[in-house]
């Protein structure tokens, strides 16, 4: 008799509608590309993923690449469920990547292949030492600009996702794309390496601008491929199905 395959353990995002779209959550240890143009809610969604995880006992880490974490917290939506204790007690850790660059002597315009390895090893060390189970890097695109070549970017993502997976850490790599583009990433290698792609966008319909979310791929689970409309609220990210009608993507 054939052995029944055990279902993959899920990492519930805590965003009810997204967990429902993913039939229970992200398969644990997957690396997800969270992609979209500016103002589509990527950072807010990623933060909620971490906060909800920290509340449930998954130690979480946010790696900020472009803006300081202080500025991030000042500007981000004030979630009702964000207890500052989570940060004070290091259940949710916020790291400024430029500080790590500086400590490792990587604060320069372009990194070599060896330096890419050093950067990956440093991130994985922190994840291992702190027992991080959920990680967000915001954004992978900004790191990509420092790596310059597709070869180095591919190497960075491959090593990182393999290492994170081995540590049982579920991760979201935030990717920025230009409005109106059909691509899921800037350097065209990120989407092929990720286990999943969540695409966020702005959609214009008869003069109204709607924020949308669509799961393009997710290894290890069946999922809805429909487009949803989202709202960023103090109670978290809310989603409803997009009503079918004439639309133009931005």
């Amino acid at each position: 008799m054939a052995e029944v395959e055990k279902p993959r353990e899920r990492c519930r995002t805590g965003i009810d509608a997204l967990d429902s779209i993913l039939y229970g959550g992200i398969p644990r240890s997957n690396t997800i590309l969270l992609t979209g143009s500016c103002g589509t809610g990527k950072t807010s969604l990623a933060l909620e993923f971490l906060i909800r995880g920290a509340i449930e006992g998954d130690r979480s880490m946010f790696v900020s690449v472009t803006e300081t974490t202080d500025k991030l917290l000042a500007n981000v939506i004030r979630y009702d469920f964000l207890d500052k204790k989570l940060i004070a007690e290091a259940k949710m850790v916020l790291i400024d990547l430029p500080v790590i660059y500086e400590r490792l002597g990587l604060d320069k315009a372009e990194l070599t292949m060896e330096e890419v390895s050093l950067l990956v090893a440093s991130i994985l060390n922190v994840v291992r030492e702190l027992g991080i189970k959920r990680l967000v890097i915001d954004s992978i695109t900004s790191i990509g600009y420092k790596l310059k070549t597709q070869e180095k970017i591919r190497d960075f993502i491959l090593r990182l996702s393999k290492g994170l997976s081995a540590l049982g850490c579920t991760s979201m790599l935030v990717s920025e794309v230009q409005p109106g583009t059909q691509a899921y990433s800037t350097f065209m290698v990120e989407e092929a390496l990720a286990d999943g792609i969540i695409l966020m966008g702005n959609m214009e319909r008869r003069g109204d601008l709607l924020r949308t979310l669509q799961v393009i791929k997710m290894r290890g689970t069946t999922h809805s491929r429909a487009k949803y409309v989202l709202d960023l609220t103090q109670a978290g990210v809310l989603l409803v199905p997009l009503l079918k009608g004439g639309s133009v993507n931005l």
């Binding site: 109204d208 709607l210 709202d231 009503l243």
Partner: peptide, 15 residues
């Protein structure tokens, strides 16, 4: 913003 934004009506109600 507008009565044409029916999805947003659902979202605000959910909130």
């Amino acid at each position: 913003e507008s009565p044409t934004m029916l999805e947003n009506i659902m979202l605000k109600t959910e909130y």
